[in-house]
Computed example of a mutant assay.
Amino acid sequence: MKEKSSVTIFVDDELKPVAELQTPVQFELDTTRLTDGQHTLRIVSRDPSGKEGIRIIPFEVRNGPAIAIEGIKENAVVDGKVPIMVNAYGKGDQKNFLIIGSETPQSIPFWIFLILIGFVAWAAYYLITSAAIPLDK
């Protein structure tokens, strides 16, 4: 029987591997045990002759509650008092979605007001010019 290659899977800089498996393999990474933020998946492979290969895959975990912020952007230059709205909500799990609190209220964009003002001005113009046309009987 032909020997198979093996893979050893590490997360971040841990010395203890998450798994040591024979290839081909399907592996399920449980990110619920990781903190939110940047991580790396390091896969070390060994073929039957003893040669090694390595692959490093950076990824980001975001299991915690989602955080939505309105009123300030990253690396913004601000002065004075800045009104900021913060909303945080959980996503539930892969079986249940939490709808309560998952919508973040947002202010109305200024271009909506411009469209509304333009429509009202056009409607007023249309009504005035339509009323000014004499109707012959």
Results as ranks from 00 to 15, higher is better:
30 D>R: 04
30 D>A: 08
30 D>L: 09
31 T>M: 06
31 T>Q: 05
31 T>S: 06
31 T>D: 05
31 T>W: 00
31 T>F: 01
31 T>L: 02
31 T>K: 02
32 T>A: 07
32 T>N: 12
32 T>M: 12
33 R>A: 15
33 R>E: 13
33 R>N: 09
33 R>F: 12
33 R>Q: 14
34 L>T: 07
34 L>A: 04
34 L>N: 01
35 T>I: 03
35 T>Q: 07
35 T>E: 08
36 D>I: 11
36 D>P: 04
36 D>W: 14
36 D>A: 15
37 G>K: 01
37 G>W: 00
37 G>L: 00
37 G>A: 02
37 G>S: 04
37 G>T: 00
37 G>V: 01
37 G>Y: 00
38 Q>W: 08
38 Q>V: 10
38 Q>G: 08
39 H>C: 02
39 H>L: 02
39 H>T: 03
39 H>K: 03
39 H>Y: 02
39 H>W: 01
40 T>D: 10
40 T>A: 11
40 T>V: 13
41 L>G: 05
41 L>T: 08
41 L>R: 00
41 L>V: 12
41 L>W: 09
42 R>P: 01
42 R>A: 02
42 R>H: 11
42 R>N: 12
43 I>F: 13
43 I>D: 04
44 V>S: 06
44 V>Y: 10
45 S>M: 03
45 S>N: 04
45 S>Y: 07
45 S>T: 13
45 S>P: 01
45 S>R: 01
46 R>A: 15
46 R>F: 10
46 R>E: 15
46 R>H: 11
46 R>Y: 04
47 D>E: 14
47 D>S: 11
48 P>H: 09
48 P>L: 07
49 S>M: 11
49 S>F: 12
49 S>P: 00
49 S>L: 13
49 S>E: 14
50 G>S: 09
50 G>E: 07
50 G>C: 05
50 G>W: 09
50 G>Q: 10
50 G>V: 05
50 G>K: 11
51 K>Y: 06
51 K>S: 08
51 K>C: 04
51 K>G: 04
51 K>A: 07
51 K>I: 05
51 K>M: 07
52 E>G: 03
52 E>P: 01
52 E>W: 09
52 E>H: 12
52 E>C: 02
53 G>S: 15
53 G>W: 13
53 G>R: 14
53 G>T: 15
53 G>A: 15
54 I>A: 15
55 R>I: 11
55 R>E: 11
55 R>C: 05
55 R>Y: 06
56 I>V: 14
56 I>M: 01
56 I>D: 00
56 I>R: 02
57 I>M: 12
57 I>C: 09
57 I>R: 14
57 I>N: 11
58 P>A: 03
58 P>I: 01
58 P>D: 02
59 F>K: 11
59 F>I: 09
59 F>R: 10
59 F>C: 06
60 E>L: 02
60 E>T: 03
60 E>F: 05
60 E>M: 05
60 E>I: 04
60 E>K: 05
61 V>Y: 00
61 V>I: 09
61 V>G: 03
61 V>K: 01
62 R>S: 14
62 R>Y: 13
62 R>P: 02
62 R>N: 13
62 R>I: 01
62 R>E: 10
62 R>D: 14
62 R>W: 09
63 N>L: 09
63 N>V: 07
63 N>H: 11
64 G>Q: 07
64 G>E: 06
64 G>T: 05
64 G>S: 03
64 G>N: 05
65 P>Q: 07
65 P>N: 06
65 P>C: 03
65 P>H: 03
